[in-house]
Amino acid sequence: MINVEHLYKSFGKNEVLKDISIEIKQGEVVSVIGPSGSGKSTFLRCINLLETPTEGNITVASVDLTDKKTNVTKAREKIGMVFQHFHLFPHLTVLENLTYAPLKVKRISRAEAEEKGLALLERVGLSDKQDAYPSSLSGGQKQRVAIARALAMEPDLMLFDEPTSALDPEMVKEVLDVMKDLAESGMTMLVVTHEMGFAREVADRVIFLDQGLLIEEGEPHTFFNNPQSDRAKDFLDKIL
């Protein structure tokens, strides 16, 4: 599903990602963890080209994103992204947030878009909020709408960048539950998170970044109980 080969990314002289290679299979849920500034967000943002890689190849669903001939805008339709700070469209209602891209980008009919939108709202438990504006929602509700908005484009793959970091503790669970449900439905997911519980329980694989290097990867149980590298050990000691 995703194939990253020798990915490098620099901001000016600052080399943020160094020679990252990884392959992610269809339906796999991969957690990306690592200290602040290690390049987790940059890595994720390279996969839908919100950041342009300095070097290397990225293929998503057999489309080579780093090929100059690829229509990046088109390719992004199939890659959903959920941000730490939601970024819902504040001037649109909840349902309009969900139907906007299907209507304007995929050009499906309004009736179909609304039907799908309502079904998604039900799935994330927010059927009663379809006409509300984002400003009237709690953080957890906003994030669930943001997930539904991304799903409305029927993506092959979902990227999450610390989806629960901006939430009050009591709202973390409702969002993680939606993500868990999504993982069980077979969605391919790449999740940057500080929620080790999620990484442990839901992820099929954990990758650990530090200073732009992919230091270690493995099955969660092995990684958390028996990390191989000193850097991963240090990191886990600090947070667990």
């Binding site: 919100l50 805008t73 700070h85 970024h87 980008v105 484009m153």
Partner: peptide, 24 residues
């Protein structure tokens, strides 16, 4: 973040400007 959210949904630049950025 509004630009990024629109880009991530595959919204073309012109449409994003007209529907998302300018109204705000």
């Amino acid at each position: 973040g509004q630009t990024e959210a629109a880009m991530a949904l595959g919204v073309p630049y012109r449409q994003m400007m007209i529907d998302i950025i300018l109204p705000q």
